[in-house]
Design a protein around this nucleic acid. Structure first.
Length: 572
RNA sequence: UGGGGCGUCGUCAAGCGGUAAGACACAAGCCUUUGGAGCUUGCAUUCCCAGGUUCGAAUCCUGGCGCCCCAGCCA
């Protein structure tokens, strides 16, 4: 293409998308141009089934499946199940559910590293025959000592130069179960002096009498991840093995294996894993939170797990959108959790039905409203989506409003209800506060107001304005529900940054969950089902929790609405 | 002189020798029957630092500095 010839061609230049590719897409685009792998793009998402997926995995899932979709390729789901002591089929089920929920499909390409145990065993035999692997009798501690340090080379094991026949015999007997757990390992014979510790004769197989979630007791030796991972990718014909940064120095090892074996060579590309402010994303730590019961479980709505986010009320598209927006690069980074929340609100704003709910009810009596009268007022279901239609909301003489929407002695910028002030009740009437009733302790227990019948629906014929519009609920018609309010699980932007003598659990936010009982919602919500999402006007987005029973609904607050008033208050 | 990576706005992130995109956050204003949503505007004279090459450098070279990862028979 001659750029100069097209420079004057403005219309075309203008319509051309100024696509900037992230470094991975740049590599893949280049590979396709060069017809590498015949132009094929085949990725995979390779979780270990030892825990639940979290938002960091979502980044990888969106990347791998997204790449396949974008380039007309395929993406496999493969469980890297090489450690039976930590893996459970319970986890493989949750992982599949989560990937599907996120909107991705591996079709018929569901694999397990354990599918390849026989092949991997053959590969090991080849290495031994080629004099590239040996059985080592050193103990785990000895192996560590012989490995050297980061600055000093390692020392060869005294068993390093065993003859091939002896290695073959010993490895066969390892597999046959003749030796106790941990007594011997199979090691690759590479370079004990390498500056890259991964190349100092890494362990390929260990003896482990543990029942595997899929292969049962067929094996008593199990491949190490490093020995299984690259070859699994190779076997599946993966073209681009995308993984996180910490595997960068494993790449020379994987390349060595592939080369010794003479098999298909996937290209490994490493990217920076996701970090999120106010959030912990380490499987080990998440497991600890669950095991020590600091939260309710893997799907606790405060957890950054996919199942937690789902229960909290997140949508798959909000998460996907977030993953698109954070980009992919190699530098360490921590994404502001506010971006995740922004993506969430953006999605929920468009799709959620509006509804009125009062978290902390304050009774209001409309003195001049006829006793016993009930009006069905029209309310818009979603101003962002006219097709969502309208609904009827009952109005009567006794109502509940939000406690914090009334102040007896309001500060300057508070323009909600206060004595003598007129406000609008959304879709209903203008009301004016005439009296404040208190109990013996001086707490406000009830308000008396008058309404202007001419303002039915919320507009005044005389054109007079009102500063505030408030949500409300008819006392006699409202349903009582429980609402769970969530805040960040950690009080620190970086939960792992701790002072001496403290640990990260000290940063747990004691106020991350607030259960509010006695909330009232409009009657239309009575039929809501677990998982249904709503916007409670002026408050936020809420989602019906599976803990709900037919008699009592439980709502999770997914995220608040942006709250300008709260900001003003903070400044004051 | 152990090896491997990375350093562009408060946070992500484009940029690939031609004179700093975009998003979030933040700020101001408009609009509003959600103090919601939406809209407008502002927000890096400068790219970790120092030299050098060049008419011209965030981009090239040299030397520093800083941060992250690696010494599981975990993944």
């Amino acid at each position: 293409m001659n750029d100069h010839k097209h420079k004057s061609d403005k219309p075309e230049a203008a319509t051309e998308a100024p696509v900037s590719l992230d470094f991975i897409r740049a590599i893949i685009t280049e590979d396709i141009t060069n017809n590498k792998n015949g132009g094929r793009v085949h990725t995979r998402f390779p979780p270990e089934p030892n825990g639940y997926l979290h938002i960091g995995h979502a980044k990888s899932i969106c990347l791998n499946f997204g790449l396949a979709r974008q380039y007309g390729g395929l993406c496999n789901l493969r469980f890297d199940d090489t450690n039976p002591t930590k893996e459970e089929s319970h986890y493989v089920e949750s992982i599949q559910k989560d990937v599907r929920w996120l909107g991705f499909d591996w079709e018929d390409r569901l694999f397990y590293a354990s599918d390849y145990y026989d092949q991997l065993h053959e590969f090991a035999l080849k290495l031994i025959r080629d004099g590239k692997a040996y059985v080592d009798d050193l103990s785990a501690d000895e192996i560590r000592e012989y490995r050297g340090t980061l600055t000093e080379p390692g020392t060869p094991s005294p068993y390093r130069d065993r003859p091939v026949e002896e290695n073959l015999d010993l490895f066969g007997r390892m597999r046959a179960g003749e030796f106790p757990d941990g007594s011997r390992v199979l090691r690759a014979k590479i370079d004990m002096a390498s500056g890259n510790v991964n190349l100092r004769d890494p362990v390929l197989y260990r003896i482990l009498r543990a029942t595997h979630h899929r292969t049962g007791d067929k094996w008593c030796i199990y491949p190490m991840y490093d020995w299984a991972h690259g070859q699994s990718d190779s076997i599946e014909g993966i073209t681009h093995s995308i993984c996180t940064l910490e595997f960068e120095d494993h790449r020379p090892l994987y390349d060595w294996f592939i080369e010794q074996l003479g098999i298909h060579h996937p290209q490994q590309i490493e990217f920076a894993p996701l970090n999120l402010s106010y959030t912990v994303l380490s499987k080990r730590k998440l497991l600890q939170l669950v095991k020590e019961k600091h939260i309710g479980g893997w799907d606790d709505p405060r957890m950054p797990t996919i199942s937690g986010l789902r229960r909290r009320g997140y949508t798959p598209s909000a998460i996907r959108n977030f993953c698109d927006r954070i980009g992919v690069a190699k530098r360490d980074s921590t994404v502001d959790v506010a971006l995740l929340e922004h993506c969430l609100r953006e999605d929920l704003n468009k799709s959620s039905a509006r509804v009125m709910g009062v978290l902390r009810p304050l009774k209001v009596v409309i003195d001049n409203y006829p006793k016993g009268q009930v009006e069905e007022l029209e309310a818009v279901n979603n101003p962002e989506d006219p097709s969502a239609g309208i609904r009827k909301v009952p109005f009567s003489r006794e109502l509940f409003i939000e406690r914090e929407d009334f102040m007896e002695d309001p500060p300057k910028k508070f323009y909600r209800l206060s004595p003598g002030r007129e406000v609008r009740l959304r879709y209903a009437y203008f009301i004016t506060c005439t009296d404040v009733i208190k109990n013996a302790d001086g707490e406000i227990v009830e308000l008396h107001c008058t309404y202007d019948p001419a303002t039915r629906g919320g507009d005044s014929p005389d054109g007079r304005k009102v500063k505030a519009t408030m949500h409300w609920v008819s006392a006699a018609h409202a349903r009582e529900v429980e609402v769970r309010l969530y805040d960040y699980l950690f009080t620190k932007e970086d939960p792992l940054a701790v002072a001496d003598g403290e640990n990260w659990l000290d940063n747990l936010n004691p106020g991350s969950l607030e259960v509010v009982a006695g909330c009232r919602v409009e009657p239309a919500l009575a039929v809501a089902k677990a998982g249904d999402r709503f916007q409670f006007e002026r408050l936020g987005y809420f989602c019906v929790d599976p803990d709900s029973t037919p008699g009592k609904l439980v709502f999770n607050r997914t995220v608040t609405l942006r709250d300008t008033w709260a900001k003003i208050q903070q400044k004051q």
